[in-house]
């Protein structure tokens, strides 16, 4: 059953990936390679499959056919230990999904202690440093309900970093935030990108894309329609669909 992977692969490699929800073809023949340390921004209209695309990478969604290789491991291969692979992939949710019964620090240390088996004292030291890094040194003992949306999302990013992942995936990380909180989250994401993290970010924040992304991928109706550098994509979109999309998000 184990099929060898042909050729060299990127950190994340989609090869002819298809996915259906019932009869709806939500991912159509996706081929995409993300190199180590690369930052790729995925954008497109709602329902275009961008969230589904990144949720496939850590197996929150499964694919019907095609190959998806992450960190050298084929997800479809029964020998691939998904639980293990997920420890290498941080995932930041639109709605944060912090553990409400745990403090900020406990949110950050829970998986390192129980999944990575890092000694508690060491995990807590690292957790405090990470919370300081995202600007929340004074919120270590706060519960999520006591934090603003922007603060919660920064804790969520610290929670991912606590696992020392090779890849970070962001699923519309600023879409649920009040406008004045967006930049504090984007600043943290820029810092993570500048440290050389491999990232895929579903977002419409063009400022972020221009600043750190090497590539923008535009999706529509489950397919990748266009991909290029942020400059190419935002200044000279090649397809009618991407022009129509950009005119809508730029107008406001």
């Amino acid at each position: 059953m184990t099929k060898p992977i042909k050729g060299r692969t990127g950190m994340i490699e989609f090869r002819g990936v298809n996915k259906w929800f019932g009869t709806l073809n939500v991912l159509k023949d996706i081929t995409l390679s993300v190199e180590p340390r690369e930052v790729v921004v995925v954008c497109g209209p709602s329902g275009s499959g961008k969230s589904t695309l990144i949720r496939c990478i850590n197996g929150l969604e499964t694919i019907r056919d095609g190959d998806l290789v992450v960190d050298g491991q084929r997800l479809a291969d029964p020998a691939t230990n998904m639980t293990r692979l997920r420890t290498e992939i941080g995932f930041v949710f639109q709605s944060f999904n912090l553990y409400p019964h745990k403090t900020a620090l406990e949110n950050v240390t829970l998986a390192p202690i129980h999944v990575r088996k890092i000694p508690r004292a060491e995990a807590e030291k690292a957790g405090r440093e990470l919370l300081a890094k995202v600007g929340l040194a004074d919120k270590v003992n706060a519960y999520p309900a006591q934090l603003s949306g922007g603060q919660q999302q920064r804790v969520a990013i610290a929670r991912c970093l606590g696992m020392r992942p090779k890849i970070m995936l962001f699923d519309e990380p600023t879409s649920a935030l009040d406008p004045e909180m967006i930049s504090e989250v984007l600043d943290v994401m820029v810092a993570v990108a500048e440290e050389g993290m491999t990232m895929m970010v579903v977002t419409h924040e063009m400022g972020f894309a221009r600043k750190v992304a090497q590539r923008v991928v535009f999706m529509d109706a489950g397919a990748i329609v266009e991909s290029g550098t942020p400059d190419e994509f935002f200044s000279h979109p090649k397809t009618d669909r991407s022009r129509a999309f950009l005119s809508k998000i730029l107008r406001h």
Partner: peptide, 11 residues
Amino acid sequence: GQVEAGVASGM
């Protein structure tokens, strides 16, 4: 989302 957060962190 709580389940997904746990899954995503490798639990």
